[in-house]
């Protein structure tokens, strides 16, 4: 399983990732000048948190959102391991929001769907990493933290 990691030495907290995610992925117009006036407001899937750290869905190995979803709207892509919301069937019950340990699922009351990062699974490469001006975001193989048995 691959994960998106942030190099804290390189992240300047410029919010470019948020801006591009919000425009390219979340808006209907896909143009910044129009996106900012869209109603409902586009919701970026990445959050520049704390001092400076771009946080998206971590696509947990044991994802609590998958267990909490009462109608199978939250799904895992068997090939990539990416967890995504099948928006057409989302009933906005916010059970996934209730259990997400990272607080990165947005309960959008205006769009009536749970909004979260699917790491641009249909584009193949995440926009946030692509647009980061300092190259702080990169996709790496998830480290195996389990104690190895010899």
């Amino acid at each position: 399983m691959k994960v998106l990691m942030v190099d804290k030495e390189k992240c300047t907290g410029c919010h470019q990732c948020e801006l591009w995610c919000g425009t390219e992925i979340a808006s209907t117009s896909r143009e910044l000048a129009r996106a900012i006036n869209e109603a409902p407001q586009p919701v970026p899937r990445v959050y520049v948190e704390g001092q400076k750290f771009a946080l998206q869905c971590r696509h947990c190995e044991n994802a609590p959102c998958l267990d909490a979803c009462p109608n199978g709207t939250m799904r895992r892509d068997p090939e990539t391991g990416l967890v995504y919301v099948n928006e057409p069937t989302c009933i906005a019950c916010w059970m996934c929001v209730m259990v997400c340990p990272f607080g990165i699922i947005n309960p959008s009351s205006s769009m009536k769907v749970a909004i979260k990062c699917d790491r641009c699974r249909s584009m193949g490469y995440p926009i946030c990493a692509e647009v980061c001006p300092t190259g702080a975001l990169s996709i790496v193989e998830r480290k195996d933290y389990r104690k190895k048995k010899f």
Binding site: V3, M5, V6, K8, G50, Q51, F53, L55, R58, C60, E61, N62, P101, F102, R142, K143, D144, Y145
Partner: peptide, 14 residues
Amino acid sequence: FSEPEYKELMDTGL
């Protein structure tokens, strides 16, 4: 917090 999702974020040094 031994799950990899937490470990990898703790590892960032932030």
